[in-house]
Every structure is written in structure tokens, then in C-alpha cells.
Design a protein around this nucleic acid. Structure first.
Lengths: 154, 154
DNA sequence: CAGAAGTATTTGTCATGACAAATATATTTA
DNA sequence: TAAATATATTTGTCATGACAAATACTTCTG
């Protein structure tokens, strides 16, 4: 044996983490596919931003990065692209000139509503055959995972 | 209302898909952090390749891309990096000259064993406080998600 | 067996993710 | 109030993900 320390071998076949990772990849791929099939020139990540702005307009890039669990640097680039695409607007704050407040445009709202439909469709595809009780347990457990990892990373 | 069609609004707060996506991001982030803290010059994705090669040596890039649910183009680049890092070797097949067979090196094996320890550690962090029954249900449901999405994408 | 079709891998491009460093503005403090 | 700190955002770099196109072999078929 190459390694003489205690061997805690991970078995991907039974690993919860691994199945979460693969499911996430596949779910995103399905959503991505549905979006491109329908010629929607937007990514799942960009939709996430639109979603949050349509729920509460006027968020900053920093607030959005927390809500979406994304790096602020990447959020900055995403909002640039969304602004260029005319889906959101950035307005410099009057009292604090470091801040941009972000607003969804009319074009963005229209697209967002269509995206809800496609997100709904992609949800139905991925969750087919899974009963409500299991879904509840999954959401509860996944919330716990998120809490655990947030605590570790803090 | 902007949209006059049937409105199937998605609520991220209760969405299984959304919680899978966020959990996956956070789990990877924890593992990534543990790896860089320990000065392991490798990414979670690259470990995935090492893992599979240590389980069954001599796989091709195509086989690896299926096992890891990754794009073949990206797998090609990942194996290039792993070869440069001296963790795997690519050997041209004698009978079919299009194929490379991939082998983990001694250096790769040593690293792989260390990575199992860190994967184990990161699993414990993310799953703390989740009971065995819930874990079983999660794995079973997530396998179903993977099947559902594979079927759709095929 | 030559050309067509299929297969394995690579390369190019654009979006995202992690993370360090830079920039601009605000706030705190000596 | 000037200097140090803190905060919001941006830019740069490298790895990854999706996807189209190119390359190099193999296999199939007329």
C-alpha cells in the first residue's frame, strides 16, 4: 500500500456530496439546453440575477453576490454583461458614490417571466418520479449542508 | 401584469433544484479551500480524474469524460494539465492510434491517497447533523435526478 | 480499395468560478 | 484634518463548462 496513514477511502458511488455535484451539473445542463433551444440568449447564472432583481429591485452587486452565493468579482462581470444586453440598469448611488444600484428593465422583466416557465419545465424534468416527502427531506438536508459549509467558510 | 400566459412562478426558497445547485457550489468551495490550505496544487475536478484512474487504470479520455459527466473537450484539457503536472501518463494505443490510454503515476497515487483524506474531511463538514436515513433518501433521489436528466439530454 | 461516415481527441471562444490586486470612495482615528 | 482602515467595485489570471469546428485515424460501403 502506498499510503500508511489511516485510510478513509471515499466511495463516489455512495457519496452524498458526489451525487449533489453530479445532479447540479446535470440540472444546469438541462436548463441551459432548454434556454438555448428556445433561442434565449441568457445563461442560468444570469437568470439568477434577473430573478433576484425582479423580487427586490435596487440591490447592489455586493448584495446580489451574497444572495446568489457568487464571487463579487464575477458578479461584477455578470452585471456588466446584463447591462450591455439591456436587461438591467446600473444607477450610481447619490450619497455613496462607490455603490451602483441595479434595476431590472422592462425587457428584463419580460424575459424573466419567460424564464420562470422554462425553470418550471426544467424542474419537472429533473424531479420526475420523486415523491413529495423525499423532496421535503432533500430541501431540509440541503439547507443544512449550506449552513454547515457557510459556517466552515466564514 | 407583464406576462399574460399561465404563470408558473418558481420560488427559489422552496426549490429542490436551487438547493442542489447552491449546495454543490458550497461543497466544492469547501473542498477547494481545504486543498489550497494544504498547498495541494490540484482542483476538485482534477481529483475526480485521479480518483477514477486509481480505481481503473488505462481509461481513455472519452471514458473518463463519461464517468465524470464532463465534456470531452474539457477532459482533454484537464488530462493535458495532469500530464504536465506529472500525475498521469498518456500512452498512445498500438492498435487504434486515435486513442490515448491514461495511467496514474506513482506521484499521482500518493497524491490521490492524501486527497481521499481531504475529501473525507470535507464530506464530514458538509453533512454534519444530517441523519443516515436522510442521506439514504438523498442519494436515492439524486440518482433519480441524474437518470431523469440523462434521459432528457440523450 | 477509394470515398463516405464514424470515432477519439484537440483547439477556439465565450461565460463562470476562485482569488489576488488595483481603484475609488467612505469612515475611523490619532 | 491627515493618515490609516474599511468598503464597493473592477480587472487580471488561470481552471472549468458548453459547444462548434478542426484534425487524425478507423471502419463501412459501393
Amino acid at each position: 500500500m502506498t499510503n500508511t496513514s489511516a485510510m478513509n477511502k471515499v466511495n463516489l458511488e455512495t457519496s452524498v456530496n458526489h451525487h449533489i455535484a453530479i445532479s447540479a451539473i446535470m440540472i444546469k445542463r438541462v436548463f441551459f439546453k432548454i434556454l438555448s433551444r428556445n433561442k434565449l440568449n441568457i445563461t442560468p447564472e444570469q437568470w439568477n440575477v434577473l430573478y433576484h432583481l425582479s423580487e427586490s429591485d435596487g440591490l447592489t452587486a455586493g448584495e446580489l453576490s451574497e444572495l446568489t452565493y457568487k464571487d463579487l468579482a464575477n458578479m461584477s462581470r455578470m452585471t456588466q454583461k446584463l447591462e450591455i444586453a439591456g436587461l438591467i440598469e446600473k444607477k450610481r448611488d447619490d450619497t455613496d458614490k462607490r455603490i451602483f444600484k441595479l434595476f431590472i428593465t422592462e425587457k428584463g422583466k419580460v424575459l424573466n417571466n419567460r424564464l420562470h416557465e422554462y425553470a418550471f419545465e426544467s424542474t419537472n424534468i429533473s424531479l420526475e418520479g420523486i415523491d413529495e416527502a423525499s423532496k421535503k427531506i432533500m430541501v431540509k438536508s440541503l439547507k443544512q449542508v449550506i449552513l454547515n459549509t457557510e459556517k466552515f467558510l466564514k
